[in-house]
Amino acid sequence: MNEENDLPGQLRELLEDQRLAVISTRTGDQPYSNLICFVASNDLRYILFATTRATRKYANLMKESQIALLVDNRSHGLVDPFRALALTALGKAVELKGTESAQALGIYIARHPHMQEFVSSPSTALFRMNVEKYILVRRFQDVMELQVTL
């Protein structure tokens, strides 16, 4: 298949190559952004991330579960605007508890072994983002939308 038209393939490659994403939450009308470590599920429907409960981000998530994530492969060079991919994921974040959390923890640590201590701490919450839509920007202005279908 033409790589250009294999959008899920491009998404998967980007999400596997990158470890960090920008998360956007909000309090009232005020948007708020942070860097987080993430891991995406094989079918690209879910994205796991963690945050300590004392953060503003956690407080925001408790009030408003609708979030956006930005993942990109920019290299901070001249060619970035034309060659970098920027992927925005839109969806709802759900705090994982019990068995679900234990299973997700294994997946998260396998991707980010150096975060084991952080993510295993009782003060840290593990979230699953249920992705509703991806928006992929290529070559600066070419924008494709991928709606997750049931």
Binding site: N5, L44, L146, Q147, V148, T149
Partner: peptide
């Protein structure tokens, strides 16, 4: 637009 691997895709902006 194509349905592929659990996604429905469509162009939002074309250059």
């Amino acid at each position: 637009d194509a349905e592929a691997n659990g996604f429905s895709t469509r162009a939002r902006q074309i250059v």
